[in-house]
């Protein structure tokens, strides 16, 4: 799980162009949206693409997103349970 969390942090930094952020700057339990990393709605869409492209996960129910994208840790748990690649 630790490796997956690190991978996700690196992928988030890359796809969201968080140039001044390093993996160690991201608290795996901190909110991705609002107070935490301060991501916006376009970032959320980019994370959905990331899940499909890198892990073969298609999010068909948008209401799931709020729970899955709470933090890097919740993303990692969902990826670990549902990945197809």
């Amino acid at each position: 799980m630790e490796q997956l969390i690190l991978d996700l942090k690196q992928q988030i930094i890359e796809v969201l162009n968080l140039e001044d952020v390093k993996p160690e700057d991201i608290d795996e339990n901190a909110s991705l949206f609002g107070e935490g990393l301060g991501l916006d709605s376009i970032d959320a869409l980019e994370l959905i693409v990331l899940m499909e492209k890198n892990y073969g996960i298609k999010l068909r129910d948008p209401s799931q997103g709020k729970q899955i994208f709470t933090s890097v840790k919740t993303m990692a748990e969902y990826v670990a349970a549902n990945r197809t690649k």
Binding site: V15, L16, N17, I42, D43, L45, E46, V49, E52, K53
Partner: peptide
Amino acid sequence: YFPSPSVFV
């Protein structure tokens, strides 16, 4: 085929 929302905007 992975259309990028952040590029599209």
